[in-house]
Design a protein around this nucleic acid. Sequence first.
DNA 1: AACCTGACGAAGA
DNA 2: TTCTTCGCCAGGT
Length: 113
Amino acid sequence: MVSEFTEDVIKLIQNIPEGKVLSYGLIAKLAGNPRAARQVSWILHSSTEKYKLPWHRVINSEGNIALRSEIDKQYQKDLLKKEGVKFLDEYRIDLKSSIWNIESIDKIKVKKE
DNA sequence: AACCTGACGAAGA
DNA sequence: TTCTTCGCCAGGT
């Protein structure tokens, strides 16, 4: 059994469209807990396989890939580029064009009801 | 129950 | 503007 917050986070991530990204903080905020960004990373870390989450579409607030190892970062970058995401630097995404606009948040909220 | 940890983030130096 | 510090939350040990 998971908390409602966790459920919302998972649904949000599952709904990130191809070619778009969201930041940890933003996800936490949309799920109703603005300060739980770290929790989001934990969820991603522990539930990706279970829920088939598009983990690669989650980056930090600055648009950077948040993984630690070079190999993983490179892999995530490849996945994103394949979806058409534009990179400004080696591992920095162009948030302006790739951030997922929150207009559809309502749709997701409804989905959870 | 106490303490640690993390794919974060905003604020202060 | 770059680097450090400190707060956050829930699961793990």
